[in-house]
């Protein structure tokens, strides 16, 4: 449905163009422009999404490439040297002689895995529950809403701790899912109320009269409208997973073979007498900075994301859609 529309738009320009049949290459170029290049341009035009996106990319780079460039931390090096004193350990070492840079870098991939799995799990579940309960209404709605209300009121962190104690997971993907075990409920409620508003719009009523299947109505007509909420909450859930995992690693509830910024903090604080002078500041600031910068990147990204789905801003940045309104400049 939406495919036909975009082709129609691009052909509806001048008379000469109207006669020419668009070739396959044109079609692909147009799709690339609409689905890939335009969102990128919109993102780049807002400083928040730009900075946030760059920060996230940097972490992904560190997680994918950086782990091959920097050797895993090993004990037995010189102990407690400060940052920038020994070029072999640019960020200094801890009380076991492990390089802090290597520890921060090698904690990144499991963290990214947890973030992605947690965010995918909770947004996917929330989108399904929210759209179905909002659109179907009736008993389906009552049952699904009651379940999400219950999930929403159970305090998250204690629940997560109980799950972790019972299952003792060690796979980062599985831990990510447990950490966002009831994060989906809030988003499901938001999506439901959006869908409740949407479902009585005339164009959706038209689809219903045309006997379009429920599946197609939800995918074609409803989902594009709730994408902003989905993306923003994807990013927020990711942030929640970071907060939760670092906290639980810090208090030692999670026992896993991989390293984490929370474990680094725990080591600094639990080593007796390690923190009694200002010179140990680098030891706790390094993991804290890793946490705060990644989370800041996600916050910036989600704050600017709303523009991505604003059709007016999109149209201004798309090359394959002809300008109809007055040019406002870019």
């Amino acid at each position: 449905m939406s495919d036909k529309n975009t082709t129609f738009n691009s052909v509806g320009g001048s008379g000469a163009e109207r006669d020419r049949q668009p070739s396959k290459a044109d079609l692909y170029r147009e799709r690339l422009d609409i689905f890939v290049l335009t969102p990128l341009r919109v993102m780049w035009s807002d400083w928040r999404t730009r900075t946030g996106g760059l920060i996230i990319l940097a972490y992904v780079f560190v997680g994918v490439v950086g782990v091959h460039l920097i050797e895993p931390a090993q004990t037995g090096g010189p102990r407690l040297i400060g940052p920038l004193q020994n070029m072999q350990y640019p960020l200094g070492t801890n009380n076991l002689g492990e390089g802090l840079l290597a520890k921060v870098v090698h904690a990144t991939p499991p963290m990214l895995k947890m973030v992605v799995s947690g965010a995918v799990f909770s947004t996917a579940l929330a989108t399904v529950v929210g759209t179905v309960s909002g659109y179907k209404g009736g008993y389906t709605d009552t049952v699904l809403t009651t379940i999400s209300d219950i999930a929403m009121t159970i305090p998250g962190l204690p629940l997560v701790i109980l799950f972790l104690v019972v299952f003792e997971p060690s796979n980062p993907f599985f831990i990510g899912v447990i950490l966002s075990i009831n994060a989906w409920a809030g988003l499901a409620r938001t999506i439901r109320s959006q869908v409740l508003e949407l479902r009585d719009q005339s164009y959706i009523e038209a689809s219903r009269i045309m006997d379009v299947s429920l599946h197609r109505i939800i995918v074609d007509d409803i989902l594009p409208n709730i994408m902003p909420y989905v993306l923003i909450s994807f990013v927020n859930t990711g942030r929640g997973v970071i907060f939760g995992s670092v906290a639980l690693f810090y208090i030692g509830v999670l026992n896993v073979p991989f390293s984490n910024w929370g474990i680094m903090l725990n080591r600094a604080y639990s080593t007796g007498g390690a923190l009694y002078s200002w010179s140990s500041l680098y030891w706790i600031i390094t993991p804290m900075a890793a946490i705060v910068v990644l989370s800041l990147g996600l916050v910036l990204f989600s704050q600017g994301t709303e523009r991505l789905f604003n059709p007016r801003i999109r149209a201004r940045h798309a090359e394959s859609i002809e300008e109809t309104g007055p040019t406002t400049g870019d």
Binding site: R239, F243, V246, Y250, Y269, M288, I291, V292, S295, L300
Partner: peptide, 15 residues
């Protein structure tokens, strides 16, 4: 506000 919003409460507490 955006910066403070991205600092976890326990990181602030530890600091």
């Amino acid at each position: 506000s955006m910066f403070l919003n991205s600092v976890p409460y326990f990181v602030a507490a530890l600091l």
